[in-house]
Every structure is written in C-alpha cells, then in structure tokens.
Nucleic acid binder design. Structure first.
Lengths: 229, 229
DNA sequence: CGCCCTTTTGAAGAAAATCAAGGGCAGTGG
DNA sequence: CCACTGCCCTTGATTTTCTTCAAAAGGGCG
C-alpha cells in the first residue's frame, strides 16, 4: 500500500528518471480509508490534500435536483483527485468509493515542492488532467448511442487497468447495473438490456462482479474505441 | 484587436497586478484569421501555438463514424485553446469557427516565460482548464433533459459574456439550430421544438441571430443554473 | 431459512429520431 | 424590380429508443 501505483500512473505520461520516481514514492502523506459505498469527498468542500487512490475503485458524480445521480468518471488505483486544492476552489462534484478504498492524502505544499524539483512531473499532472478532459469529451461524443457508450466504457476500464489487448481478459468490475447506468446516463433497466445485447453478441460476460471480455477486437469495433488517444 | 480580452479572462480567475496584465497584453504573437464555418485547428494536429480568440465565436467538436458531429464547448473572445501544445499531444478534437474569427497565436516559449515570471498566471490557466472540465461535467449531468440542457447552455453563454443578470438582455448568437442541436446532443428538428417550448414559456426569443432572454431568473430555474460554480 | 439487494423480464408510456414537406428570408443575377 | 436559389426554420406523421411501473427470479449472508 504505497505510492508505487501513483508513480506508475505518472510514468504513463512522462518518462521518469529513477530519482524522480523516488521523489514521488517518498511523498509524505497520510492514508485514509473509506468504506464501501461511502462518500470520500463531498461536493462543495475544498480538499486540503491531493487524494491518490491506493486501493479500490472510486468515482466522480453529481446529483440532480430530482435526486438522480450522474457519474462522470472513475478513479482506479494510481489515479488522483482533489487537484481543486491547487485552485482553492470548492469541488463541483463529489467522490464516491464503490469498494472500500484507501487513499493517500498529500499536502499541497509537498506537491508544489515535488513539481518545483522535477518540473516534468508537473507536466505529467497536466497531462493527466487533460486525459480526464478527453474522457469527458469522449463520453459526450458517444452519448447518442447507449450500446456504444457502454462498450466504450468497458474498453476504457480495460485499458486503464493495462490488461492485454489480445484474447480474452477478465477483471473485477465492482459496479452494479445501476452504477453503470448512472455512468452511461441511462436507467438500470435499460443498462440490463444493453448488457444483454453485448452478451448475446458474444463480446462480454459479467458474473459475480467479474467482467470477462470475450472478444476485445469486436468490442472495440462496437465501441469505436481508440486505444490511448 | 489586442490581447485585452485575454487578460480580462485571466483576471476572472486570479487578481492581476498592473504589471502582470501588461505582461499578458504584451505577449508576442501573430494573428490568424479563419473564415466563417472553417476549421481553425484540425483533430490529430499538434498546434505549435496557444490560440487565443480575439474576435468571433468558435467551438470544439468531434465527429462520429456516421459523420454526425458533437460540439463539446464554445470559445468566446478572450478564451484560449491549443494548450495541448504544452503536452506535445495531438488534438483529440477539432476547432471550428462559427463566425469569422481572429486568433492570436502565441508561441509556447512565451507562455512558459510568462508563467515563469508571474506564476499566478499559470494558476489562472489551470483554473481556466478546470473550468472547461466543470462545464463538460455539467453538460453530462444535464444531458438527461434536453429542455434543461438547452436552457443551461443559454445561461452559460449569457454569463460568459458577462451580461447583466437582471431584466432582459440580448446578445448575438451566431449558431443555427443544427449547431445548437450538435451541442445538446439532439437533432435540429428536436432543437426547434425545445426552443419553441422556451419561447412559449416566455423565457427567450431568438430572431435573426439575436437571442433575447426575457426572463433570466425563470430561465435559470429551468436550467438549474448556478452562476459561476 | 428468510431477508435484502441486484438482476431479469414484461408491458405501457414518454421522449427523441427519422422522414417528409412547406415556408421565410437574404443574396444573386437577369 | 422581381424571380430564382440556397439555407435555415417550422411543422406533421411515423418509428425507434428509452423510461417508468411492476413483478418475479437469483444470490449472498445473517
């Protein structure tokens, strides 16, 4: 339970020298555990730390006035959130732990010092934010076709876990159909029907929290998915 | 046709000292004019400059495989794009000029120098990017109700032009119903019907490219709009 | 076992897309 | 000056997609 995955995630954006990696892994931090289905960061709060996911799945979401929820992104181990602290702005959305999560909480001043010492890491943080933005744009772009947006979400989650893009691969997907629907912008009932289509097309299987992609290339076809755009 | 509006836009995020404002307005740049309905930046290209809108309306968009278009944001005078250059990443979307546009093209190195000299401006650029992200999340959040998302777009554009939030106000909206539909994720025909609802409710009027908001407070009610979130 | 949460399926209704046809208005050219 | 043309707006009718409401079936866990 260390910052190794965070360093890996940064290394995805920029090449890291050994010393730079050590700087990241040596960041002073405290850890915070958030129980399954609990809110990690509230909307409207101004987090004093950068939150790095060490373990578990979390997500960003907003609430509508009728109480319904919209997920706008997922946080996997190694991902971070709460960069709002940099801007001293309150969160426009909240962070929910889908599973029990462990976060590393890093004080802003240590991030500042890190970036001052290794500017390339600052660039990586920019890149990571831009990647978030790209994902949001992609969700919007695909939002006219729920089958496509669903297939695309699975491809996205598959790629973000750095699983092999050949043959079949399986991973834990700790989301209910309601969660997925909230991410796709459709109801749980409709999510179920969409899921069935993909299952009957022989592209995926989803049992007991394990999602198996049985035909990744056709799934990517359906999703119009471009690997790491 | 100077960088004054850009400085104003920056000043929206952080307080600017006189000297800092002069640094911005004195940024070396060339200008580029893009004709109405032409592409300013192509998807896949890696812009070598930061593009600042001096005059005109532009927008970000992506194309689907069936040729349909999705707008994911608007660029008004003072706004910038092409920050991708910072990351040496190709554009994941394209920029379209809705009207004839004039852009200021600023070389990356001058932005770097500016930020080095006045770090607070770097923070403002972050803030502006985060604002883009917030808008994307808001579009997603509202996307389940086309009347609300339409009303919200008008509120957004109204606020971004810093028009008074009382009484009625009018501004040039150089978009066709097809453009608006592409921004809302609905068809032009449906956009027309939604627009009629707002008109018949006495909230807006739209004639000859001029949009008049006749009842801003009720429009914001319908839109669930929060001023500058 | 019984309970709760989730998944699955059906049927009816609402929302939006699609298809199709007019209508208004500005610009162009005879 | 007027007819023509092209673009956009408007409206109607039909079909598809998605939601809503409802109910039953599965699965994990005390």
């Amino acid at each position: 339970m260390s910052l190794t995955l965070f360093a890996d995630s940064i290394a995805n954006y920029v090449p890291l020298a050994k010393g730079e990696r050590q700087l990241i892994e040596g960041l002073p931090h405290i850890t915070r555990s958030v129980a399954r289905r609990r809110e990690a960061i509230r909307r409207g709060s101004t987090p004093e730390y950068l939150y790095v996911v060490l373990e578990g799945w979390a997500g960003r979401y907003g609430l509508r006035s009728d109480g319904s929820r919209r997920l706008t992104g997922f946080l996997l181990p190694g991902d971070f959130c709460g960069i709002h602290a940099v801007c001293h702005k309150p969160m426009d959305h909240a962070i929910l732990a889908f599973t029990k999560c462990n976060f590393a909480l890093v004080e802003q001043k240590y991030i500042d010092a890190l970036v001052a010492e290794a500017p390339i890491i600052g660039q990586a943080l920019w890149n990571a934010k831009l990647r978030d933005e790209i994902r949001l744009r992609t969700w919007l772009l695909n939002s006219d076709d729920s089958l496509r947006v669903y297939a695309h979400l699975i491809c996205e989650l598959h790629e973000r876990q750095r699983l092999p893009a050949e043959g079949s691969s399986a991973f834990a997907l700790p989301l209910t159909q309601e969660d997925i629907g909230d991410a796709l912008g459709i109801t749980a009932v409709h999510t179920n029907r969409i899921m069935r289509k993909l299952r009957e097309a022989g592209l995926i299987a989803h049992k007991r929290g394990i999602l198996t992609i049985t035909d990744i290339s056709n799934l990517r076809e359906v999703a119009h998915f471009n690997p790491s755009p």
